[in-house]
């Protein structure tokens, strides 16, 4: 029972992270109909950006350990701003020139952008203020990130809020899990409100429905697309930040961690019906449940280490039953 609850907690936590990332995939797909493979690299940037803020910038500004209580929120905002800007730049300089080009080209461009971010992130320059002979030397400020994994500073203590069971078999709900789930849900609700209740959201939906008619109706298509990228990147930044709060090893930019997270989130978006925001959230949780419960309860029969297989099997099964995902609208074929 306790094990079940523990797995459930983890599934919900990880699921909300997947959902946040999946939203970015699904928004871009909904509008531009292409898979933004560079999205997972924006997540990485969010993670490293918040790390950079908390571990390098704050100490240089004189806020040492323990970090002040507002550090977490500021790190999140910093990461969001950084990623939002990056998302904007990527769209402006890599994707916009390709508007109207075959989708496969945009896809290759996305892979190119992804390769660029991954490899640029591995380079390392060290900035030292003043002369390096000063004793003690000023803490080095590293740009960008290098190939070594780093430890995310503790921004929030992970205290047990709820403990069920005794001894070796307990289920714990930590404060970190609650913060992650709450932040993710809040962002999702905000996004939903934005898309459904505001004028900008209406414009987004219009562009997603039909770009040409939206343009004819006076919707500034390019601005809407830019904003969509920024929104997706901001959510990705939040996901990256929450991810390294939960799993505090900040892996280097080309580490399989990020590819895998991005891939699973993307699968989540497809399972939920790509282009559908609520579908992405649903898909995120579904994928997390499939991998967590598959790994826990099927390992007796199949052995462990098969998370990916469960994820992709879930994907194939869902697609065979519903070819456009759970909440996806059926494909309209125009002749």
């Amino acid at each position: 029972m306790a094990d079940l609850l523990q797995i459930l907690t983890m599934a919900v936590t990880v699921g909300s992270l997947y959902a946040l990332i999946a939203l970015g995939y699904t928004m871009v797909y909904g509008i531009l109909k292409f898979i933004n493979f560079a999205h997972s690299d924006v997540v990485v940037l969010g993670a490293w950006g918040s790390f950079f803020f908390a571990a390098a910038l704050l100490p240089r500004m004189g806020f040492g350990t323990p970090l002040p209580w507002w550090a977490g929120g500021m790190a999140l905002l910093f990461a969001m701003a950084l990623c939002g800007l990056t998302g904007f730049l990527i769209e402006r300089f890599a994707y916009r020139p390709l508007r109207g080009a075959p989708r496969l080209n945009v896809l290759i461009t996305a892979i190119g952008v992804s390769l660029f971010l991954q490899n640029a992130g591995q380079l390392q320059f060290t900035l030292v203020r003043g002369d390096d002979t000063a004793q003690p030397p000023a803490p080095a400020l590293r740009l960008p990130f290098g190939t070594q994994p780093q430890r995310m500073p503790t921004l929030l203590p992970d205290q047990d809020l709820l403990v069920i069971g005794e001894g070796q078999s307990t289920a714990r709900l930590g404060s970190l899990d609650v913060v992650i789930i709450a932040t993710a849900l809040a962002l999702m609700v905000l996004l939903d409100l934005l898309v459904r209740r505001t004028k900008f959201g209406m414009a987004m939906r219009a562009v997603s429905f039909n770009t040409d008619s939206a343009a004819l109706m006076g919707v500034p298509v390019n601005r809407v697309i830019s904003m969509t990228f920024v929104l997706g990147a901001v959510l990705a930044a939040a996901a990256g930040f929450l991810y390294v709060l939960k799993f505090p090893t900040v892996q280097q930019t080309a580490h399989p961690t990020w590819v895998l997270v991005g891939l699973k989130a993307f699968v989540a978006a497809v399972v939920g019906g790509i282009g559908n925001l609520r579908g992405a959230v649903l898909g995120g949780f579904l994928i997390a449940f499939a991998e967590q419960f598959g790994e826990s309860y099927l390992q007796k029969y199949l052995g462990s280490g098969l998370k990916d297989v469960y994820v992709f099997s879930a994907l194939i099964l869902v697609l065979l039953v519903r070819p456009t995902g759970i909440l996806g609208s059926p494909l309209r074929e125009k002749v």
């Binding site: 797995i7 799993f247 090893t249 399989p256 895998l260 390992q299 462990s304 280490g305």
Partner: peptide, 10 residues
Amino acid sequence: YKAGDNDFTA
């Protein structure tokens, strides 16, 4: 597990 997994709860 597999390279890239960060969640080992199961």
